[in-house]
Design a protein around this nucleic acid. Structure first.
Lengths: 191, 191
DNA sequence: CCATTTACAGACCGATCATTCTAAAATTCC
DNA sequence: GGAATTTTAGAATGATCGGTCTGTAAATGG
């Protein structure tokens, strides 16, 4: 017994994510958000509580996508270097955005809502754990040297991963990112 | 025959850099900049032309620092893996800031003045060239495999470098960054 | 010690910010 | 089809934005 809403929540979040991603928290003005998302001001406050809530919800949606993708690839059995290479390569294609919304949130720590920063840190932690699990698998299967430092390598892979998200910002092409990944994987193999 | 200025240009730029760094271009409000830098509004416009000019000048100063550090270490003769490891380790200590101002400028491309983005891209290009020169030296000295892809490895090192600047944002300690670098260098050695 | 020059502190400006409110439009239940 | 309910569009709101202007303080040259 009410007027149906004229917007789709997920569509709104995707648009908002895109804007926050490119413009940052402060750079994405409410007027622009209202115009592009199709969600009117009043409903924005009713649904998300305000700009900060919209940002956190958009980040949640992004992290849902991102972590889903990581989980899908990095839990394939048996875990090992194949999964690691696959996930690195999967990240390099098809993004219409700039860099990575999670990383942008980390770099803009003092401007984004505190809750958003906390979620980004938690997301990064989960990704690191997934890398470590696959390194452990690689070790068990003899793919990497027996003396390998799993923790160090796990963080190294995540570092490379994060760096790849930055690379594109200064014009690095997909082909060049492929070469980066190939070079990095070559260094990982047992010798 | 005039009143002497009550501020030091370099000190002002250091303070402004710190604020833009942490808060982003839009997040660093003019009132806060005026308060923290000690430079009053009027002089800010006379000296830098406005907020955008101040940002670009602060980025220039940062890039001067950063590129100077890279040049100092990466032009030591003979060039090779020692320089690369030295520069990676040098980046991990003593920063009171969050991440890297150059990378922040790249990630906030659509919010910072266009001139700032262009300078950041140019800076990244110079750093990559320095890495490549040392990889060429390493190849000539037999430190890395003869079949190595210098261009790919150069971008890979820069990717790792950029990732290291991100790592600290989510709580990675200096000791952990050391382990990351050790793991990465192990993969580079000729075998 | 006065004239000149420059920097200073702070008031002022229109524009725009995030947020709140008001009233009309749209849908469902009865 | 009328009452109830919810969304809509858009007009206020006070605060604050970046930028400009005005008058005063501080220094030097003569």
């Amino acid at each position: 017994m009410a007027r149906p809403r004229g917007y789709d929540r997920d569509t709104v979040l995707d648009k908002a994510m895109s804007m926050f991603w490119r413009l940052g928290y402060e750079g994405a003005h409410l007027a622009a958000l209202v115009e592009h998302t199709g969600l009117n001001r009043f409903s924005l406050y009713k649904e998300f509580g305000g700009k900060a809530g919209l940002y956190e919800a958009a980040l949640d949606r992004f992290l849902g996508y991102l972590l889903g993708q990581y989980r899908d690839i990095l839990t394939v059995q048996p875990q090992g270097l194949e999964n690691i290479e696959a996930v690195l390569r999967s990240l390099q294609y098809g993004s219409e955005y700039y860099g990575c919304f999670m990383i942008n949130t980390l770099t803009q720590r003092d401007s984004v809502p505190p809750g958003a920063y906390d979620r980004a840190v938690a997301g990064a932690g989960e990704i690191e754990a997934l890398y470590r699990a696959n390194l452990a698998g690689a070790l068990a299967r003899g793919q990497i040297a027996a003396a390998s430092d799993i923790a160090g390598l796990g963080k190294m892979l995540q570092t490379l991963d994060q760096g790849l998200h930055i690379q594109g910002l200064a014009g690095t092409t997909d082909a060049q990112k492929d070469a980066i990944i190939t070079a990095a994987m070559a260094g990982l193999q047992a010798r």
